[in-house]
Amino acid sequence: MSTSTPDVRATDGVDWPSDWLRATLGFLALRALSFGPSYGYAIISELERHGFGAIKGGTLYPLLTRYEAAGLLTTEWRAGDGGPGRKYFALTEQGRAELTRLSADWRRFVESSVHYLDPDRPAKEISP
């Protein structure tokens, strides 16, 4: 898999609430595949390197299987060089469009959340 953005953060001990990861893992995995076809362990390593903690196979694979069934991904088995074969996942055009849509929606959601949580905002703006 090709490398992604260089601003890799140190992520030892990352422990996000599981609800947050459940909500975001889908498009994070799509993003990890937007750099090119990749396999399970490489996707997990990519997400861990970028601060999302160590995603378990039991969480990632069912998600990828659902995305494949939905037409967002295709899969291909490739023989390993002297090692085991690997199942590569690749984004389809539909998957790429879904990533674009979800990323835009997420950014709007985060902006709204950040704005709302801003402690410097006047109290009257929060009151009904």
Partner: peptide, 12 residues
């Protein structure tokens, strides 16, 4: 096969 592939990579 895909589960064995990941276990081979992670050692879990």
């Amino acid at each position: 096969a895909s589960a064995k592939e990941l276990l081979g990579d992670t050692g879990q």
